[in-house]
Design a protein around this nucleic acid. Structure first.
Lengths: 239, 239
DNA sequence: GTTGACACAGAACACTTGTTCGTATATAAT
DNA sequence: ATTATATACGAACAAGTGTTCTGTGTCAAC
């Protein structure tokens, strides 16, 4: 065939990079014309010409007459950036599945395990969060943990974003320094704060040190719902 | 819209299954007519009808007027046939080990993975973090990810605490909206910000919406080191 | 009965897309 | 000079494809 099919020209590597970038950004493969636009080739036939070479060399696969059917089979050898590679990752270590019970918003009590009847569930008990056992404190009993997705920016003073996943353990009491999910009776509000008992009153300290604490004088007005064990933020996902 | 957009009919789950199967078998997404053939629908409009519902419910994404642009955003809640019944016991509860390369502080560049594969001897990371594959975006290649522990409160405007673990992917370029780890030449500073290119300059937006962005007029003074994929905060550990 | 929401089919349309053909221009080998 | 090869453009075409519009039938509610 063409150039002995041995080495990749700069055009070839540019195409491979574009395929990777496009796939990452859009989630599917570009069309021939989109490739041509990117690498500065005016004719679709020339793009096809290069793609056939890449296909013959085994870098990509295509399905005839099917749009956007290019698949990257192996990474281009040039590729300035990564390489990293080959981690052993034969990890058979333990993993725990934590049920994702719903969403946590400031304006409503949080969903809790075993209390929630499955009949009215919006999403049902079907989603879950997988976490490596090694990432949890050894003392935790994984089976009693549950997870909630944060809805809204109201937990921002706890350094918790919209969309974050908080993993908590049911609890009605807390020790000083625990981060807890509490329901405030007089405010009708759910919040996440660090818990400190100070004599007769309770101080709820935002995780963000630049923000002021809340003081609760009557402990009856504060309902501890659970202790926060972990916060997970998946940055790359859809916003 | 149509059926309250709450629950998935059997057609919906069939479509979701087909999308997954097709994607796995062929490496790209099916066309509307291919979906129609599979679920036994004769008209493309009806397939579009269902796809719009799935899109509204957040299960898939589509790009207008682009063929085969369907992307599965989240798994359908029902129909977990493969995990239980006939399939090999290969649980897709895969776990990946991500090397913890060091600490990230504002005052120093971040440790990066060595990209030479032929390098002298391997010294594995002294520790690593385990993350369920299901928690990472499907597009991520786990082998190139690395993790850093945040040292200090300087990343607080990125909603990232002292002690948090950030998982990133090496990158030298960023797309708008990505959270990136960057080195600022003129400030001699590492920081985590949301990246937005605005004409000739770059806006670095803190995750905390109450804080002001940084503008970089000369892109040469900004070195993108990696994209943030996930942030993990283990609350119970430090006390 | 009438209404309206829902589930479907079919067709028409416009645009996208892969493919192919003809042509052109270098460069190198003959 | 001639030929062959690699590279490149443009046009044209047929198929693939997403979208939209007009129907039809069902079924429950009013």
């Amino acid at each position: 065939m063409s150039p002995r099919e041995k080495k990749l020209s700069e055009r070839h590597t540019r195409i491979m990079e574009f395929l990777n970038d496009f796939q990452e950004k859009r989630g599917y493969s570009p069309s021939i014309r989109e490739i041509g636009d990117f690498i500065g080739v005016k004719s679709t036939s020339l793009v096809d010409y290069y793609l056939r070479q890449l296909e013959d060399m085994g870098y990509i696969s295509r399905d005839g007459h099917v749009s956007r059917s290019i698949c990257v089979l192996k990474p281009a050898p040039s590729a300035e950036k990564k390489a990293a590679a080959t981690s052993p990752m034969a990890a058979l270590r333990e993993m725990v599945s934590i049920p994702l019970l719903g969403r946590i918003v400031a304006s409503a009590p949080i969903p809790m395990p075993q209390l929630s009847d499955s009949s009215d569930g919006y999403f049902g008990p079907d989603s879950s969060v997988d976490v490596a056992r090694s990432m949890l404190p050894v003392r935790e009993r994984p089976s009693e943990l549950f997870a909630l997705e944060v809805d809204g920016d109201s937990m921002i003073d706890a350094m918790i974003n919209d969309g974050d996943i908080v993993i908590l353990r049911p609890a009605v009491e807390a020790n000083n320094g625990d981060m807890v999910a509490v329901w405030l009776d007089d405010r009708d509000e759910t919040t996440l704060k660090y818990f400190y008992r100070e004599g007769n009153r309770v101080r709820l300290q935002p995780a963000n040190p630049t923000m002021a604490p809340i003081y609760i004088d009557n402990p009856r007005h504060l309902r501890v719902m659970g202790k926060v064990v972990m916060v997970i933020r998946q940055v790359g996902l859809a916003a």
